[in-house]
Simulated scan of single mutants.
Amino acid sequence: MDFRFTEEQEMMRRMARDFADNEIVPYAQEWDAKDEFPWECVKKMQEVGLMNIGVPAEYGGPGLDHVAQNLVVEEIARGDAGICTTMAASTLLAADPVLIAATDEQKKWWYGRELEGVIGAFCLTEPGAGSDVAGLSTRCQKVGDEYILNGTKQFISNGGVAGQYTVFATLDKKLGHKGICAFMVDRDTPGISVGKKEDKLGIRSSNTTQVIFEDVKVPAKNMLGKEGDGFKIAMKTLDISRACVAAMALGVAQAAFEVSVKYAMERQQFGKPIISFQAIQFMLADMAQLIEAGRLLYLEASCKQDQGLPYTDAASLAKCFCGDVAMKVATDAVQIYGGYGYTKEYPVEKYFRDAKIMQIFEGTAQVQRIVIANDIIRRFSK
């Protein structure tokens, strides 16, 4: 067991941290306040390769392992969880179905466009199907050498800015999970429109919209896998993404922790810095413990992915724990700031708002606990 990062992993972590400090942190609160998608920053991320961290080397990308990818995710989220969502939703979440199930020709198409700067989006969630993936209603009907898509996707990260989608639809809802199919879809295909943009509590610099499909014709060659493989592809994608979301949550927690320590050292009460009070020291000590434990969990899940070991349970443990850590640390950060923490003048109220989504998307905290509990039952039933 070696806790040292490789030279490449450490180089990527440092590069992401420097980028976050210089290109994200100074502007994050402004993006949040304006509910604004930061196109210029995204273009800079594309130029330095951050928007392509999930592209395999054989298709022109950096070929990073999952540990390196998620170290980058943590550092960018430390700068701003919203722009990190943009990055991760494009190069990781939307592209993971391609990584899992695409042919060589399909990968060349998808990754080639991504390297040119095309943003991706993962279209799974619907108004009536969130945690219940098998309950989705978007239809796909085979007509000749095409599939016709009809339906509405909800809460799609990058929905309004993406140029390519991975879309999940069903041949027949009565078939349940056995009828679900997955497709790569070009945003410029006739019949695709973007619905309302969500006015969100947190991660406000990310773009979250409905995506509507009305008689959208998708070539059969754009199907990932075969008919009925969609549910399996979606589940594998979510398994991979959970360690990524755990890393993102840790980035928010780390940011909240760092500004809390700095504030506690500067803020004077009763004639001395508040960090000298044991009550504040204990809160900071608890933050540090939770962050370090969460980081080890997401790195374990990432390492198991890279080693080809089973990682579903480790990823759920990491996602569930780190989401809770982000919420706990951000809440305590507001408490340390006191009345100032409740104002938008200081960054902790933003971390508080950004943290909440970490317990919701890519599988809620409750769904993760179901996965963890089922693993416990399975192991102790042997």
Results as ranks from 00 to 15, higher is better:
Asp215His: 09
Gly60Arg: 11
Ala234His: 06
Ile24Pro: 05
Leu224Trp: 07
Val133Ser: 08
Ala134Cys: 04
Tyr27Glu: 10
Val67Ser: 07
Gln278Glu: 14
Ala288Arg: 15
Pro127Ala: 04
Pro347Ala: 08
Ala301Trp: 04
Gln106Asn: 00
Tyr342Arg: 15
Lys174Gly: 11
Phe361Ile: 02
Cys320Asn: 14
Asp145Ser: 15
Glu116Asn: 06
Glu75Pro: 04
Lys344His: 12
Glu345Lys: 11
Tyr111Lys: 02
Asp239Thr: 14
Phe5Met: 10
Ile233Asp: 05
Val25Ala: 07
Phe122Ile: 08
Leu296Val: 10
Lys108Asp: 09
Trp31Ile: 13
Ala243Lys: 07
Cys41His: 00
Gly323Gln: 05
Pro310Thr: 03
Val48Asp: 00
Val216Lys: 02
Ala77Asn: 09
Gly54Asn: 03
Arg295Tyr: 00
Phe19Gln: 10
Glu345Tyr: 04
Met51Phe: 06
Leu296Asn: 14
Asp324Thr: 13
Gln278Met: 10
Gln269Tyr: 08
Leu290Ile: 02
Ile233His: 06
Phe122Thr: 11
Ile233Ala: 02
Ala77Phe: 02
Thr6Asp: 10
Ala182Ile: 00
Ser131Tyr: 01
Phe282Pro: 04
Tyr165Ala: 12
Leu290Asp: 09
Met87Tyr: 00
Leu224Thr: 10
Asn374Cys: 04
Asp96Val: 13
Lys178Cys: 12
Tyr263His: 08
Cys181Pro: 06
Lys107Tyr: 05
Ser137Arg: 14
Ile336Asn: 04
Thr6Glu: 12
Gln268His: 13
Lys142Ile: 02
Thr237Gly: 11
Thr312Ala: 15
Lys217Arg: 11
Glu292Ser: 15
Asn22Leu: 12
Glu30Arg: 07
Val42Gly: 01
Gly341Gln: 05
Gly130Lys: 14
Thr237Trp: 06
Glu75Phe: 00
Leu250Thr: 12
Gln69Thr: 08
Ala77Arg: 03
Asp104Met: 07
Gln281Met: 03
Gln254Trp: 12
Thr166Met: 09
